[in-house]
C-alpha cells in the first residue's frame, strides 16, 4: 500500500492577524506556522498506521516555497518515508490540486489522503479537485477507515448523521477528527528525518482562477454589556427587544 499524504502550512490560530500592501496581502512577519492539524494529526497518522499494518510507504507532498520545508521535515520525523515539494507559492486551490494530481499521475499511489480543510481559509476544495483530476472516488470528512484487501470501509461525518460506506480500489480521502490519534515526533524520528529524501520538483504552469483582492478586519464588538446575575428577566428583555434574536 503506497499512500500519498498532502500537507499544508497554516498560521497557528493564536497568531495575531494583520495585512500589508494596502490590505491585499497577509502579513506573515512574526507569525508562527504549523502543519495543518487535520493533515498532521489524522491524515498522516492514519496513513502511517495502515502501512505499518500492511506494508508499503507514505509519501508526503506539499505545494509551496522552500520555507515550507520545516513542516515537511516534521512529517518525516513523525514517520513518513519520503517527501516531495512542488516549488510554487500557489495562489488558489486549483493550482495546488493540479500540482498534486500531476505528481500522483507520475507515480503509483493506492490512496491519497488530505485534511478535511486548512484552518486558515477553511476551503475544503483541494481534495475534491484532486479526486476529479484523477477520476477517483472521493471519501470526505472521514472519521473512521478500515482497509481490508481491496475494500475500504469508511465512516463520514455529516450534519447530524454519520454515513458508513464501502469503496473498492483507489480513492482520495479527506480526514476529520477521530480518524487517528496525534503522534508526537521523538528524538530518533527527528534525527532520521534529516536523511530522508525530500525531492523538490518544478510546478506545472497552471494559472489561478480566483484571487483575494482585499482583506478586512471586522470592527471589534462594542464591548460586553454586563447583566446582574439576579436579573435574568433583563437579559431576556435585551435579547428580545434590543438584539432581536429571540
Amino acid at each position: 500500500m503506497n499512500i500519498l499524504v498532502c500537507i499544508s502550512k497554516t498560521p497557528d490560530t493564536t497568531s495575531k492577524i494583520s495585512f500589508k500592501s494596502d490590505d491585499t496581502e497577509y502579513n506573515s512577519d512574526g507569525v508562527t506556522f504549523i502543519m495543518n492539524p487535520y493533515d498532521e494529526w489524522y491524515a498522516l497518522v492514519r496513513a502511517l498506521e495502515i502501512t505499518e499494518q500492511m506494508g508499503g510507504s507514505v509519501t508526503v507532498i506539499n505545494v509551496g516555497p522552500a520555507s515550507n520545508d520545516i513542516i515537511i521535515r516534521k512529517a518525516l520525523a513523525i514517520g513518513a518515508t519520503d517527501a516531495v515539494r512542488v516549488d510554487i507559492d500557489a495562489q488558489d486551490a486549483f493550482v495546488v490540486a493540479n500540482n498534486i494530481a500531476a505528481h500522483a499521475k507520475s507515480k503509483n499511489y493506492d490512496m491519497i489522503f488530505l485534511g478535511k480543510e486548512t484552518i486558515d481559509y477553511n476551503g475544503s476544495e483541494v481534495g475534491a479537485m484532486v479526486a476529479e483530476l484523477l477520476d477517483w472516488p472521493y471519501a470526505s470528512y472521514v472519521s473512521q477507515l478500515d482497509v481490508n484487501g481491496n475494500i475500504s470501509t469508511i465512516t463520514r461525518e455529516l450534519e447530524g448523521s454519520e454515513e458508513v460506506s464501502q469503496i473498492e480500489g483507489s480513492f482520495v480521502l479527506s480526514a476529520a477528527k477521530g480518524l487517528a490519534e496525534q503522534r508526537i515526533p521523538n528524538m530518533k524520528g527527528i534525527m532520521m528525518a534529516k536523511s530522508k529524501p525530500l525531492v523538490v520538483v518544478p510546478a506545472s504552469d497552471t494559472v489561478a482562477r480566483v484571487a483575494v483582492v482585499k482583506y478586512a478586519i471586522p470592527p471589534a464588538k462594542s464591548g460586553v454589556k454586563l447583566i446582574d446575575q439576579d436579573n435574568m428577566d433583563e437579559l431576556v428583555r435585551a435579547l428580545h427587544e434590543d438584539a432581536k434574536v429571540i
Binding site: 488558489d92 486551490a93 486549483f94 490540486a97 477553511n122 476551503g123 475544503s124 476544495e125 483541494v126 481534495g127 475534491a128 479537485m129 479526486a131 476529479e132 483530476l133 472521493y138 470526505s140 470528512y141 482562477r209 480566483v210
Partner: peptide
Amino acid sequence: KSFAGRLAIRLNAGCVSG
C-alpha cells in the same frame, strides 16, 4: 463541499467556498 471542487474542475470554473 465534497463535490463543489470536482464540479469546478469539470466545468473549468473558479471556485470560492464558504
